[in-house]
Amino acid sequence: MLEISGVTRRFGGVQALSGVDLTISPGGITGMIGPNGAGKTTLFNCISGILPISGGEIRFLGQRIDGLRPDQISRRGLVRTFQIARGFPRLTVLESLLLYGADQPGESLAAALIRTRASIRREEALVEKACKLAERLKLSHVLGNKASDLSGGQKKLLEIGRAMMRDPQMLLLDEPMAGVNPSLIRDIGDRLISIAEDGVTIVLIEHQMDLIARLCQHVIVLADGRRMIEGTFDAVAGNTEVQNAYMGARR
């Protein structure tokens, strides 16, 4: 589904990605782990078009997506979230969700001025969809609040909700559970499993190994800007190289 071959990215003298090769096949949740500075977030930034790559190529559903703008990549069904929750503090939760809605003709200036029927109908459909999603993510009670009023955990949920508004085929989640309390982590995990069951392919960057073990069928380890190893969690966790580079030796 997503094929990355020989992707490199340099920041000045720092080689953040030095030839990443990996393939994500459709379905399920793939975990992406690795020490800080391994290049996980940089890789997400490159895939989602926010950073241009220095070399290599990225294919999604068989087509090259490197060199496309972020909005073009999102429209193809590949949507990402951010590690430090980013978004629109001055929009309400409902507005943030609606913003991500696809195919809203009212986003053209002419339709906005005339208030076309098509745009109002689409808006009604999007509002309904946003309300359902909010219910699923337990955000119904804050729909009318500004996004800046939300707690850290709710912001993370909103990020996932926003991405879901686009009906993505693939979700790239950058540490969706960082800074979230344990009971909510459990919740988010359950949501992710149910999203994956709906047929959305998820790639998840996470540092909490018990979560990776619970959620991910497949795990990829990045280190020093390249893929170190991949496989099932147990296989990866048992690898001595991975233990030295990342997890620390197990007793």
């Binding site: 989602s48 078009g49 926010i50 703008r69 972020p70 909005d71 073009q72 999102s74 429209r75 949507v79 990402r80 951010f82 980013r86 978004g87 629109f88 503090p89 001055r90 929009l91 507005e95 609606l98 913003l99 991500y100 696809a102 809203q104 009212g106 986003e107 053209s108 200036l109 339709a111 906005a112 001025l113 208030r115 745009s119 808006e123 926003r162 991405a163 686009r166």
Partner: peptide
Amino acid sequence: QRILYSPFGRVLHAIRDDDVVVGVAGKNG
């Protein structure tokens, strides 16, 4: 007023807050 209260205006508001994430939302900022 029509611009302000429209999906078009919503994208403009989003640009005001974060013009990178607006791309992830599928809009060419």
